[in-house]
Every structure is written in C-alpha cells, then in structure tokens.
Design a protein around this nucleic acid. Structure first.
Length: 553
RNA sequence: GCGCCCGUAGCUCAGCUGGAUAGAGCGUCGGUCUACGGAACCGAAGGUCAAAGGUUCGAAUCCUUUCGGGCGCGCCA
C-alpha cells in the first residue's frame, strides 16, 4: 500500500498552509473543501475556504480570498495558472499542464495502490467485524440475502481497500424451532408426505431430503442437522458463485453448547449482564433492561419455563463479538429486522460496549417484478426468488451492479424481464466496455501500432485538451471517492463514479486520438498514460464492487 | 397509535454531515458512421427536489409539522 500522498492531498496541504498563513495559525471549524466545480468554466478546482474564515479573520470573504490567493500563488508558483474569486467568495483555481502531467505520473506510479489505504495514511484504520447475509439455513439464499451479500461483500472490499482490516462473518441460525420444523418437513418429504402446515413447502425440501440417507426413519433431529448442513453448503456455493465469501460461518447452536464443564457463551453473557445489573426477574422470566439504551421495552432473554429466547442468542453472539476485540462491529440486516436495531444496540451497550462501536446497517427491500407482476418471496411457501435464479437469469455482473448501484437504504424495484431484455443496455456493460476498449488500445500501443494520420492541425497541439483535462481530473478524484464511500458505508458511490469515469473516457476517446501517426511523441505518451490510468482506476472500482473488468467482450 | 426507512425528470435512481445554473441510465424526439472496439457519440424535450413553515450570506441537503408509500412493533425464530 502506498504511503505517498495523492496529488490532490498535496494540493490540500498547500491550501491548508495558505489558510493558516492568513488566519495566523487558527483553523476553521470545518475543513475547507477542494473540489471540482460543477461547471468546467469555473476552473480545475474550487474551494470555499474564504467563506469559512470571516469570523476568524474579521473580513469579508472576497477580501480573504484575495489574501489566500496571494499565499497560494507563493506556494504553487508556476503550477498555478490563475485564481478567480467568484460569487459569494468561491475561489476557482486553474492549474498548469505541467502540474497535471506530474499528477498523472503519480497516479501511474502508485499503480493498483492508487486510492488505497486512505485510512492507514490518516491513522484511522480499524479492525472491523462485518456480519452480513445471515440467511436462515432452512432454505436457499433468497433475493433479500442477495442484496445483503452484494452490499456486504462490496463494503468489505471497500473497507479493505481503504486500509481497514475486515473479518467477514455469516451467522447461521441453526438453533431453535425452525430447525425442528425443517427436520419435520424433510422427514415428511422423505416419507412421501406433505410437510407440516407451518413447515417448509418449497420444492428444494424434497430434493434435500433425497440426499439424506434414511431420512424417513432416522431420528428427526439428526435429519434436521444433516439438512441444515446441506443447506449451509448450498448457500456457501451460491454465495461463492456470487463472489461473496466469508472468513467464518458462526453457528448459533454453538452459543448454547458447553465444553468440558465450561459455561456456554449464553451463560457467559448472562453472567456479564447480571454483574452489570442489567437484568431482572419478573413473572418468572429474566429480562434485559434494554430501555436503558433507548429500546421501547425491556426484552425477555429467558422465559418463565427456563427456555432461552432467540434474543438470548443475539446477546451471547454480541458478547462473543465484543470479547474477540474489534474496533468496530458492523451488522448488515434486512429491512424486516430494523425493529431489532434498538435492542441489539442496547444489548451491546449492556455487555460493556459503546454505541459508537456498533453499526447496524439496514438494506431495504428488493421488489422483484416479472412482466409487471410482483414476484413472491416467501421462503416458507416456496415461491421465493433465489439468488441462484437471479444469477442464472441476468448474470453475476449485472446482478451485482443492479443491487450495488443504489444506496442500501433505498428500496429497489427491479423488473426481471426488463433487466433480462435490456442487459445489453445495462450501465455495467457500458463501464466494462470502456475498460475493454482501453485494453484493446493499450495492446496496440504496446505493439507499437499507429493509425492513419488525419488532416487535422488540432492534433499537433501539445497542450492538454479539455476532455483530457476532464478525464484526468476525474482520475484524481478517485482517492476522495474511496474515502467518502468507505466512511459513509456507501459502495454504491463507486458505481456512480465508475459510470461517470467511463463517460469521461468516452469523451476523451472521441476527441483525442491516441495512436495517430502524426501525434507528437509527448502527446502520444501522455494519452497512453491516460488510458493506462483510466483502465487501472476502472478496474479498481469494478473490483471493489465485485464486478469483472474484462479485457475483451 | 408508536418507531425506522423512503418521496428528486415519463420510468429506475444518484446528489443529502449546507455551497455557484439539481444530474445519470433507460424511454421519447432529432442528428452523427473511412483515426484506436458502433455494446459508440452528439443534441433536444422533460423538474414548484411531495407540501408548508423555520434556521442563514446560501437549503434537494439541517429543524418542525402535514400528506403519501414501505417495513416493524411476540416470553416466534
């Protein structure tokens, strides 16, 4: 991982120095922005620095802007072509071609590490426990799990790229009623009977039952456990095909087991809670005082008859996560579990954690339509849409893109028929196409090829053209995009970025020949470098999303 | 009733810890084809950012209320 600051970071340092020079050492409350303005006419970068300082400096923004301009000019010298002060006090910077070319060289020198490890550089890298999917092991991974898988795996990739250490974990609910119900359903199918009314009705039940020897006659709990094991293996395969892997599959059942006379994890957690005075008995049941931390009501963890509730598993699980010692714990939950956020946070705090340490991210629903009709997703009814079906239908790349291009916090309406028919129009192919096209050009360049010259004096011009400049500035924004996306747990931002970068490349490709025979050597070299850098960043963005960056299509 | 999420172009969605004239894809309409991959490119139409107040130099973004939609409110898991 590179430790050298990116071109934009260096520019920020210069701006920071200029601010300190003008204020006499005092910093504004919020750091000044240094961003590309919406309109290219406003220059290469714009900063709001002058508008943040009136109270500190005791002058109006335009006046401050003038002073900042002087300081910036001194620092940047010839690299700075000019500064305009506009509007309420924005400063628009224009940078020299030499600065841009040097920046491009930096991007290429950093290679695949360009944009990586921002958290490491900033000293904010953390060890992260990331739990996601945690689909019930009584059926295949369904569409909700697919969204959780896409989001969780991309978030993991993103956090790792940004410099964090991530442990990916899947929580297997292999304990309790549903396991018994699954066993009963399997056995019924093995006997050629209908499953219990509240049992699992899907066709896969019969199929799984057929793979369990003597399922019709063996004790039902053995059948259940074997069935669960088969389902977990099937889920693992589905998820791996979906480019989603885990460092650990954590068994809920293991929380209730004790070894060699040692207390179970559940007992351990209960002991901690009792010690902290977080539990109390009422009507014979044991309650956890979750209202201490904002829950609506206290929650039962042991019923009056002595059986622990499902929530007790969650309590024990989070106790275990906590003692394993991560800086941060992130749970990705489906929308139907948002009601549990308060109690899980409360349990975590009761166990000795802090609210800042734990994040519960809710992925909203995916509404699937098939020819305008709502596709059913009830697993118990067996009419769910499985991850495998989605992948078989529209492919891994398109499926991941569709699920990742939008914020995890917004509901997705996805018409399968439309996604299928329009697959060639899917933006993911546009991005991939740009990458493949660049690779093709680079292969030609490496082979020393040139293309016919055209009667066009413009290509003799050595100065950086506007679409080159736009593309390069977009590439320079990559580290910021990564940091922003990682800090906000928003991998979808990289999809948006990748799409706009691909568009930027298209404009460059339209305007600027790369291999034309009459190009000056330095222009040709610069444009090849731009192609290389673009391919590198596109591949990086797609890689984080778990989408392939093909050499050919 | 209470809680969480959402409401931005015809459709699907970005933009949201305040910044300049609110963007993209698809769809629609009209153009471009002998330089590197046409799975392309260019242009146009299309918006009271659900509504109303408030905060301030400035609000799609923050606060309040209202309306509309989704989901959740078990000693089920």
């Amino acid at each position: 991982m590179t430790a050298t600051p990116s071109p934009l970071q260096r520019l920020r340092t210069v701006l920071d120095d200029a601010v300190l020079a003008v204020t006499g050492g005092e910093r504004p409350k919020s750091a000044p922005t240094l961003e590309r303005p919406k309109q290219a006419a406003h220059g290469d970068y714009a900063t709001n620095a002058a508008m943040l300082l009136p109270k500190i400096v005791g002058a109006a923004p335009p006046m401050i802007a003038e002073r900042l301009s002087v300081a910036l000019s001194e620092h940047l010298g010839d690299d700075l072509l000019g500064i305009d002060v506009a509007g309420p006090g924005f400063m628009n910077l224009r940078l020299s071609d030499a600065w841009l070319i040097a920046a491009l060289a930096d991007v290429l020198a950093a290679g695949d590490d360009y944009g990586a490890a921002g958290a490491t550089q900033a000293g904010t890298a953390e060890s992260v426990h990331l739990e996601f999917v945690s689909n019930n092991p009584t059926g295949p991974v369904h569409i909700g799990g697919a969204r959780g898988a896409a989001f969780g795996s991309a978030l993991a990739n993103l956090l790792v790229f940004h410099g964090h250490r991530v442990h990916r974990e899947y929580y297997v609910n292999d304990h309790g009623n549903q396991v018994a119900l699954f066993g009963a359903s399997l056995q019924a199918r093995a006997r050629g009977e209908e499953p219990p009314e509240e049992g699992y009705q899907g066709e896969y039940v019969t199929e799984v039952a057929s793979r369990i020897t003597d399922a019709a006659t063996r004790p039902v709990d053995e059948v259940a456990l074997e069935g669960i094991a088969l389902m977990v293996a099937a889920q693992k395969a589905s998820l791996e095909a979906f480019r989603t892997t885990f460092d650990q599959w954590f068994s809920e059942r293991s929380l209730h087991q004790s070894h060699d006379g040692q207390p179970s994890k559940v007992d351990e957690a209960f002991a901690v809670l009792a010690e902290q005075g977080r539990t109390y008995e009422q009507d014979g049941a044991l309650f956890l005082r979750t209202t201490d931390s904002g829950d609506d009501k206290d929650r039962v963890i042991v019923r009056a008859d002595g059986r622990p509730t499902y929530f007790s598993s969650d309590v024990a699980y989070h106790h275990d996560k906590r003692v394993r010692g991560y800086d941060r714990i992130i749970n990705v939950l489906g929308a139907d579990h948002h009601g549990y956020v308060a109690r899980i946070e409360a349990a975590f705090v009761a166990l000795g954690g802090t609210k800042e340490q734990i994040e519960l991210l809710i992925t909203q629903f995916v509404n699937l339509f098939e020819n305008g009709e709502r596709a059913r997703m009830s697993k118990r009814a067996g009419e769910f849409v499985a991850l495998d079906d989605l992948v078989a239908d529209i492919g891994v790349d398109a499926a991941r893109w569709y699920l990742l291009a939008r914020s995890h916090d917004t509901t997705i309406d996805l018409d399968l028929a439309e996604a299928r028919e329009q697959s060639a129009e899917n933006p993911v192919y546009y991005v991939q196409y740009a990458h493949a096209r660049i690779k093709s050009i680079l292969a030609r360049a490496d082979a020393g090829e040139t293309t016919a010259a055209r009667e066009d004096d413009a290509v003799k011009e050595t100065a950086i053209q506007s679409s080159e400049r736009e593309l390069l500035l977009a590439l320079l924004a990559w580290p910021d995009e990564v940091a922003e996306a990682a800090d906000r747990r928003a991998p979808h931002r990289l999809a948006t970025y990748a799409l706009s970068l691909a568009r930027g490349y298209s404009a460059f490709y339209r305007d600027c020949p790369v291999l034309a025979a009459d190009l000056p050597d330095d222009v040709r070299a610069r444009r090849i470098d731009l192609c290389r850098a673009t391919a590198q960043v596109l591949a990086g963005a797609l890689g984080v999303l778990g989408v392939t960056a093909p050499e050919r299509m």
